[in-house]
Design a protein around this nucleic acid. Structure first.
Lengths: 212, 212
DNA sequence: AAGCCCCCGAAACAAACGTTTGAAACGTAT
DNA sequence: ATACGTTTCAAACGTTTGTTTCGGGGGCTT
């Protein structure tokens, strides 16, 4: 068993607790006591709670965006085969791969993204737009290529609709699967939920435009 | 100018502040000082902050569900004409009507719903399931009738996907419209965003099932 | 007018929060 | 062994939080 340092122990614990209860509802004392480190360690290593939150995001968003960026570059080299399904699958695969295929960690990934998004105000939104805006618009552009008969502005909106469905669903994955099991007697794997989500999204993006 | 009582002044103010910054981030002092009432008034009239939060939800969810329930009953009497589009429009109209057509208040409505949902833990989730679970499953059943070729369990999942897209989008309506204006030079009205959302959802719900 | 009940207001309460402090413990290079 | 920079620790700091207390009206009924 490899000994992990204080910084990573804090990040590992903060990640889980933030995903479970939100940022404001998670105290530094809860994090440090569960992580088995001293309370002052957070301010020593990160400077402040706000900086810790950003560090948590950076740790999984940086590799995610790097991988996504690489896969998008690969797709751009052969523009003919770019479909919605392939683009969405690329996104999904990036998330899963970065979390080493662990569904539990993928859930945390999306749960945190959802929290960050609903935390509409101030510093986190700026942080996202500055660090990850480029990859996002690259994805947006690829998607516009994949559906040439849908105007770019409509693609923009539909991507946000899709983003909402994704984050919303995957951030509440476990409770939803429990309801599904109790109401229909069927236990779906996260992968199966993901497949259903992707076909829903593809159908939505390709839908007929509203009669304006 | 009609004088409104202390209770409603608190509810009006809390509603806005909760929607803007979340529950934990909004202090009772912020609410009471902005509402122009004494700090102790919250605990006097509601008992606790948690009870205030529930009261805020009840005030707009009760009339919303009542109206939705009535419209659903109306639809059940003529099962032939029930389509996805009509059902979604019913939902949308209920929300708009209850908020007296004020887009600002409709935004608050969805923003609060989104917050409640992302606040996955404990008391709010129970509260929702107990109070509004019946109307929800009634809606679900109607939707299953409207798309007979999609199995009920698939409808269940797709409704949650749609719920996510809706809450997510409408809760961040204003910032998204600002981005759309700056990126495409087009200013959409909330109604126009709603139309686009509805066709996206209809397309998603009707999409081809994943090859399992 | 006296009593009663409901509501308001200023102040205080204990608890929890993020953050800071200064000294002890550590490993490492001189 | 000594000295040095880094990390850990217990303790305390000053705020802010939700909640409670208690005295003082305002509008009733008797």
């Amino acid at each position: 068993m490899a000994q992990i340092g204080t910084v990573d122990r804090i990040l590992d614990t903060a990640e889980v607790l933030f995903a479970q209860k939100g940022f404001a509802e998670t105290s530094l004392r809860a994090i440090t006591s569960k992580a088995g480190v001293n309370l002052a360690a957070v301010n020593y290593h990160f400077g402040s709670k706000e900086a810790l939150i950003q560090a948590v995001f950076e740790r999984f968003l940086n590799p995610f965006c790097a991988r996504l960026d690489g896969l998008l570059a690969e797709l751009e080299s052969k523009p003919d085969s770019v479909t919605i399904e392939r683009l969405l699958a690329t996104l999904s695969q990036s998330a899963v791969a970065v979390q080493r295929g662990d569904p539990q960690r993928v859930a945390i990934f999306f749960r945190l993204s959802g929290l960050a998004y609903s935390q509409a105000q101030g510093h986190l939104r700026r942080f996202f737009r500055e660090h990850y805006g480029e990859v996002f618009s690259r994805f947006l552009h690829q998607l516009a290529v994949a559906v040439p008969d849908v105007p770019p502005m409509e693609v923009f909106w539909r991507v946000h609709f899709a983003l909402g469905a994704t984050i919303f669903t995957l951030s509440g994955m476990d409770p939803l699967r429990a309801i599904c099991r109790s109401d229909f007697g069927v236990t779906l794997s996260p992968q199966q939920v993901n497949d259903r989500l992707l076909s829903f999204l593809a159908g939505g993006i390709r839908a007929a435009l509203p009669a304006s």
